[in-house]
């Protein structure tokens, strides 16, 4: 049975916007650096960052694309609070296939970053394990308070049918 139903195809092109709720913040930057074991003073020490030409500490490059700080909802049954399409797909396991990030400028603690997710495409392809699987491509555009795009995240996830027990 085809995984890519007409109902699912109708999701292509959908868009969801998450407004910024606060500045990214120094705490978020330091927390991320600590969690990654990254002791680069660019993320921790204003004087060091200023000597490197920045107005203050900066965010690690990928933080803006990795954080769900834009989220504000109760956790779903999986505990997740970030963006998800809640596609009508059942009995599948979702796995990340890859991401392509583009960065337009360095992100600072004072930045208020809003995010718009667009569902670009859904494609069904044969799986090496037999049968088929679904590739879902989404794009997140991250904008600052002036509406300028600071980063773009093209993300592909795969839905694999679960083996029957």
């Amino acid at each position: 049975m085809a995984l890519l139903t007409d109902e699912l195809k109708a999701w292509i092109g959908r868009e969801v916007h998450y407004p910024a709720r606060e500045e990214l913040g120094r705490a978020s930057i330091r927390y991320f650096a600590l969690a990654m074991g990254d002791e680069n003073p660019l993320y921790l020490d204003d004087a060091y960052a200023q000597e490197a030409g920045h107005p203050s500490v900066i965010a690690p490059p990928t933080l803006v694309c990795e954080t769900c700080q834009y989220a504000h909802r109760r956790p779903d049954p999986n505990g997740y609070i970030g963006h998800e399409w809640q596609l009508p797909i059942t009995d599948c396991r979702m796995i990340r296939a890859g991401n392509e990030y583009q960065f337009m400028r360095t992100v600072l603690p004072e930045d208020r970053i809003s995010v718009t997710w667009t569902l670009e495409d859904i494609v069904e392809r044969p799986s090496s394990r037999g049968g088929t699987q679904l590739f879902v491509s989404s794009v997140a555009r991250y904008k600052d308070a002036a509406g300028e795009v600071v980063a773009i995240n093209c993300e592909t996830v795969v839905y694999q049918p679960m083996e029957k027990a």
């Binding site: 990654m36 990254d38 680069n40 490059p61 990928t62 990795e66 990340r96 990030y101 960065f103």
Partner: peptide
């Protein structure tokens, strides 16, 4: 993604700017 970026920034230095990062699982 954070690790890939970190390895490049650690190597290149504090005035380097990561412009694009594409990674596959």
């Amino acid at each position: 993604g954070a690790l890939f970026a970190r390895a490049v920034v650690d190597w290149a230095g504090p005035q380097a700017f990561v412009a694009r990062l594409s990674f596959k699982m």
